[in-house]
Design a protein around this nucleic acid. Sequence first.
RNA 1: GCUGGCGUAGCUCAACUGGUAGAGCACCUCACUUGUAAUGAGGUGGUUGGGGGUUCGAGUCCUCUCGCCAGCUCCA
Length: 642
Amino acid sequence: MSQLSYSLPDGSTVNIEEGQSYEEAVRQIGEGLLRNALAVKVDGVNHALKEPAETAGRLEVITRGTDAGYDTLRHSTAHLMAWAVQELYPGTRFAFGPNIENGFYYDFDRDEPFTEEELAQIEAKMRELAKQDVPIEREIVSREEAERIFADQPYKLDQIRHLDETEAAELSIYRMGRFVDLCEGPHVPSTRELKAFKLLSLAGAYWRGDSDNAMLQRIYGTSWFKKKELDEHLAMLEEAKKRDHRKLGRELDLFGVMEQAGPGLSYWFPRGDILREQIIDYWKAVHRANGYETVTTPHISQAALWETSGHMQFYKENMYVFEQDDQPYVVKPMNCPGHILMYQRTKRGHRSLPVRYCELGTVYRAELKGTLHGLMRVRGFTQDDAHHFCTPEQLDDEVSLCIDLVKEIMGAFGFDDFKVELSVRDPENKQKYAGTDEEWAAAEASLVKALEKHGLDFTREEGEAVFYGPKIDVKLIDAIGRRWQTSTIQFDFNLPRRFGVTYTDRDGEDKYVYMVHRAIMGSLERFIGILTEHFAGDFPLWLAPEQVRVLSVSRDQHGYAEQVAGELRQRGLRAHADVRDEKIGFKIREAETMKIPVMLIVGKNEQDQGEATVRRRHVEGQRALATGDLAAELLDEVARRA
RNA sequence: GCUGGCGUAGCUCAACUGGUAGAGCACCUCACUUGUAAUGAGGUGGUUGGGGGUUCGAGUCCUCUCGCCAGCUCCA
């Protein structure tokens, strides 16, 4: 018997006898490791632990608790669900069933639609099957065998036919009891591993993600190693539900969508409008301090402008187009052409660059109805848009400035954890893209340089760039760990050519500018939705629509309460008095429900002393302060945006 | 746009297999004058999203439509 040698990631090797299982190799590395091992990879190919070892190579062990371990667990849970469905609803056709972030799904094709009750039945069946401690076994079969096994599974056959003949002369399948799936694995060794899972929702999904294909039924679920993890995840989902900006927008009387007026159009009630105003004021101040000029462009323009930009040809179905004086007009879906016209109102030379125009421009896009969602996806929204027009020499500084602003502005709202993606061309399909190789190279270099300068990690995504230039997308992480795509910095090699956006260089030649689009918050509406969920409606003092509410204890203090509130307003705080004939407990409850950060209680004692008792949300203990001292303290907090 | 689900008072939700649309909160009126998360009593409020149909009778069943929700697709 010959020996098989495996190299490990740390550089060491282990040897086992041919015919022994991979489990033996893992045991040699360590008993502890074996206890946590789920599967192995040899030269990148998945194997089950119990499989007899055949070829030597580079060995990786997939263990519980790691990212790969969770992926494996969730993938196996997807199979378990499919098995349960097969048991309960014979004849169901199976499509894909992968793991996804925090869970898994499986797409089924069944004549009857699944119902919520059936979801519970499937989950019960899964528990029953999992308890049987059924091994999950990997097997290699020929294409012919595979076609025979999946003879009554059209999607699997389609999948087999799509696999490359030479690269996949043999296919791997995984068996779990009576369920068998075409699958590369890896999987956990036994269904015993699958215990902390829950089916979550039901939705339609196209076969292979193509809207021309059949619509399948997708069941989503989540799966974890420990019950505690599952409970925590479900608690997070509950928390997310509580923070839903649509719910808080209504409860806190901030904003909403009016059904009579049409979908995807947001209305800002008095309280919500204050939120907007605070953000806008801050945003403009930061931009002016950083060398931007604010501009305003009209909401509509003749379609000719959008012919030049190319939007009439390529974006028409998303635009609101109408007629006036026999002329086609467009409601702007973007601000760029307007800024370009302003740039072009005069002759530009290299000495007058860079030009940085910024605008909180409200744009309208006819998004598909099914994609609309609260404030997160709307048809009318305000972009915090800016366009930089610059020379090649200025690129680095301009991109760097954009990233400075992302960090500064996001930091002001309490976000300092980001995930950054750099999207570049698909190297195989360069002809799809506008711009020259030199431009793409220079732009990417500037983006990378700026990210490195700011110490931001990023992933490079080939083929993810839009056709007109490379870009950086920034996702921020909110208070409960969710990611939101907000900021974007995009080069544009298309519009400068279409509009002829140039500057006169030192040598007297007119050259195309480098044009950068960027947005920090993305859309103001969406950003406020994110903020609402991030803070769970508990906005910091500088943003809070109503900062202070003065509560009178009895009728005798009504005048004094009004006086205190008036003084605070004079000093620039958003304060109101609640002088209704209600008990103080009732008024406090209501102020707490409305998440007002500062409550001032004024009774006989306070009035006699010329003070107010401060009751702050989420803060234990109370203090009595004179109005002037209190105002100074609060204004300082507002100024620090604490 | 596509698949599935859901629309009852301003809000949260009731109303068995078709049989007189209700409750709490909010709102209005009155009384109480209040000390740290709900004072009491009374009252107003609905074309059950909208149209059409089945039926002696529709919130409930059918159909069209509008909107919302979960996804898919899209996102120059």
